[in-house]
């Protein structure tokens, strides 16, 4: 009897733990919704920041985030996929390969703010890009790269060995087998990984603070020159102010950011389902 009771208590604790966590998520969403929905109108979406919360808008921040996500995707796609291919398909057991792999997994654990420091030294100062959107996007690309590489490697690992064998048996060289048979089969997984890491990049704040994305921006950003802002930075600015009105428009901006990330996640899901429809091994 005691044994049964202990089991029941434990089971209840497990359920409680999960409920508690999900409840916190629910509260968070409800709180942001209740605060932010009121301000979420076309004027807010198309307006520019203002010292008066009632007139403030987030158009420059939305554009900044979109540009940023785009640049990050364009930069990380070729490099991340190429690196993933090298690590997964070439010289797998060599010392060099093991070193590179360990390095990637350690990079994935470096705090994002450290990337900000590195981006400041490399892109802003050494390469003289200044505190621009481009410098910020390149910094985030470095941050996202390990994620894209790992997603690529996982997608490649999921392609059955029989596909590679089939290509080799037809007289394909290693690259021909990868390009013609392995990559097309891994494409859904890779694309999903890229879209998800775009979402991650769009939600990042800390590194961009070091790259100077805090200016009060009232115009559409130019990637290579002048100040820029992005949604999380805008949220941070507003959330740092004591007035309740600013907290409310911060909540509205959060809703926009979450909607953007949700859209990207939905796109990733769609890509995965759609593209892998015919991939039943």
């Amino acid at each position: 009897m005691r044994r049964r009771l202990a089991g029941t208590v434990f089971y209840a604790a497990c359920i409680a733990a999960i409920s508690l966590t999900l409840l916190a998520l629910l509260l968070l969403l409800l709180d942001v919704l209740s605060r932010g929905l009121g301000h979420l109108d076309p004027d807010f979406l198309s307006g520019v920041p203002s010292r008066r919360p009632a007139r403030a808008g987030i158009m420059p921040a939305i554009l900044g985030s979109l540009y940023l996500g785009l640049i990050v995707a364009v930069v990380t796609f070729p490099i991340g996929v190429a690196a993933g291919i090298f690590l997964e398909e070439y010289t797998k057991d060599s010392f060099l390969n093991r070193l590179l792999r360990t390095n990637i997994s350690n990079l994935a654990g470096v705090p994002s703010i450290i990337y900000g420091i590195f981006g400041l030294a490399l892109f802003v100062r050494a390469l003289n890009l200044g505190e621009t959107l481009l410098a910020g996007a390149l910094t985030l690309s470095l941050l996202i790269l390990p994620v894209v590489i790992i997603a690529t490697m996982e997608a490649l690992r999921a392609v059955p060995a029989s596909q590679r064998e089939a290509a080799h048996a037809l007289g394909a060289t290693r690259w021909q087998a990868i390009k013609g048979a392995v990559l097309p089969a891994a494409a859904p997984g890779i694309l999903t990984g890229i879209v998800l890491s775009m979402a991650r990049a769009i939600g990042e704040t800390a590194p961009l603070i070091l790259i100077g994305a805090v200016t009060f921006v009232t115009y559409a950003p130019n990637p290579v020159e002048g100040g820029y802002t992005v949604l999380p930075i805008q949220i941070f600015q507003w959330a740092s102010r004591p007035q309740a009105e600013f907290q409310e428009i911060a909540a509205s901006a959060i809703l926009v950011l979450l909607a953007l990330m949700f859209a990207l996640n939905a796109l990733a899901l769609f890509l995965r389902v759609r593209l892998s429809r015919h991939l039943q091994w």
């Binding site: 059955p160 029989s162 596909q163 037809l170 394909a172 021909q176």
Partner: peptide
């Protein structure tokens, strides 16, 4: 070589046959 488990590429029938000649 033909394998134990049929392993066509996830491409069209046409492209499957054209794969070898293409490369």
């Amino acid at each position: 070589m033909v394998f134990q488990k049929p392993n066509p590429f996830p491409k069209s029938i046409y492209e499957n046959v054209a794969f070898g000649p293409r490369i």
